[in-house]
């Protein structure tokens, strides 16, 4: 299967509660919490589009879109 290509990685800042689940379990350490404890994709170039962040977010705040 061809590798998925990332189209967009969206985080709804107003839904995110800063639990850090996406940050901790991202296999490529793409995500971080910013100074106001909101998840941000700090190293998007490393994202392998596995979607684990989207699936594990308890607040349904992440959407990973591929081409």
């Amino acid at each position: 299967m061809a590798k998925p290509i990332l189209k967009s990685h969206r985080i709804k800042a107003d839904w995110c509660k800063g639990c850090g689940i996406c940050v901790e379990f991202c296999p490529k350490k793409v995500l971080e919490l910013d100074e106001s404890d909101r998840a941000v994709a700090a190293r998007l170039q490393d994202c392998i589009c596995c979607r684990l962040c989207e699936l594990r977010c308890p607040d349904l705040a992440i959407e990973v879109e591929t081409e």
Partner: peptide
């Protein structure tokens, strides 16, 4: 997101605590 169509988005952010597993169950369901 594909599952957003099943959500009553007007009630979000939801009231569960940060990190509450119930949101992950909702997500998976």
């Amino acid at each position: 997101m594909a599952v957003n169509k099943y959500l009553r988005q007007r009630f979000f952010p939801h009231l569960w605590c940060p990190g509450c597993g119930h949101g992950i169950v909702l997500n998976g369901m």
